[in-house]
Design a protein around this nucleic acid. Structure first.
Lengths: 152, 152, 152, 152
DNA sequence: TTTT
DNA sequence: TTTT
């Protein structure tokens, strides 16, 4: 009955995240993420094809996104596919597909410059982000208390 | 600039696949796949939520789908997200999201099938499907020729 | 700096889980899981190759394993690779690799019979397991409170 | 009875790959890959924990590894877990676990220097690597020939 | 042995 | 439209 709905993306943010706070104070961050692949077409020409994904982050992850994610940043995202319908301004039913993220890791920052920007960080992963990211996602198992005599 | 765009699904076919053969004789199979999750809402009520995914399979995988996949069948699918736009009958631009599969494994057959049912197959994976599935997806490395003295 | 270490397995338990309770009352379940693949060797012979994985589950997941997992059961497992060393009885240093699970879903039960066993369940997923599994792994996002006007 | 045995890693090479060519001219590359995670221990201290994985690449992927992978490089790797036993020099049976890679993408290059440093490459993915990587892994579906009227 |  |  249950199934698996898992998405794994590595790509770059197209823009800074947009963050909203709902009435119940829950944070939601949204942004689009580009995943590019390059391949050769039938004429042997190299072609780059980019897919854009609508990413949604909630609560703690949204806070991390707000603080640390910027346009251009490369991230690893794990989440699930979610299809939604809504009414557009003309009252038409529209369908959209989002990736609801439940884990995120910043990779090889390319924070698209900015004035004075943190370019020394380019090509590495952000420590700040790691610090911030730690509370979200899985709690790591308490390795300290692991016995050394498991049956294998 | 490459990225990663990977989807992993385990779910059940909502209908038998539809298979088409393009002019160049390439096969395309499409079907929708349900992935259900159940959780408790804020009132402690168990709720089941089902996501429906549009799956597309090409060539060899489409042939396998045509031969072996049936409504109700549980499958593991690996692929990538692909967003497309097209014109509907009124000339409106519509957007749709598909999962282009590149690997498939049949699981826990329940092929909706037949009076008296295929219970010897129940709870296992279809041998026929495995036979068929073998040519698609990754070729397994030739373990026979692997040396025993790799440097670890 | 951070990296990704993710394992996704679908396979069958080789034996019932062994469950221990540490002094601090933390539960640990261990079992081995077979993932089989079949392919054709260079002579065109179909060969089945089975890999056995050492699975470790902690706390809530261990409790679920204890209650619901049985020899033969098919499961989806998500976790991470963990290498450990320990001293064997002769004082030799030994190395072992485990999969520390952080999510589990029961699939297509084949609970290896048992006297009177629940064979009507064969080929499906266990509702009981789903009930039990709900508290472990990710908390599903509170979809109820999601706004319908996200910016895409 | 097939199963799924899938590993996804993002990490850094501990050393340059070692590449061997077997008698049948098949190339095999091996290297170890570090995946680090940081978390807070029970005293609130930030701890970094690194797992080392033994990676094996065959044929085309081994060639790519030989040409492009260097100590320190960050890569995305997809593969499977493989357990092997062998006899050590004293005739003892030893066990080892490897990740047999079947896809690789170079990420956030930091190719450990070189004269004058490849900073224009920092934070991006190597074009050379992409060129080289293209022939390995999945062939992308021929999107050119895709019909626009799939049934969804 | 990597990376921050 | 699936599955429990």
């Amino acid at each position: 009955m249950a199934g698996i709905n898992k998405v794994i993306l590595v790509g770059n943010l197209g823009k800074d995240p947009e963050v909203r706070h709902l009435e119940n104070n829950v944070a939601v961050a949204t942004f689009s993420l580009a995943t590019s692949e390059s391949y050769k077409d039938k004429n042997g020409q190299r072609v780059e094809k980019t897919e854009w994904h609508n990413i949604v982050m909630w609560r703690g992850l949204a806070d991390v996104a707000e603080k640390f994610l910027k346009k251009g940043q490369m991230v690893y995202i794990e989440g699930k596919i979610r299809n939604r319908s809504y009414q557009d301004k003309e009252g038409q039913t529209r369908y959209t597909t989002e990736i609801v993220a439940d884990e995120m890791t910043m990779l090889g920052a390319r924070p698209d410059g900015g004035q004075g920007g943190n370019t020394s960080n380019a090509g590495t992963q952000s420590t700040a982000a790691q610090n911030a990211a730690a509370p979200v996602g899985h709690t790591p198992p308490a390795y300290e208390e692991e016995p050394d005599d498991l049956p294998f």
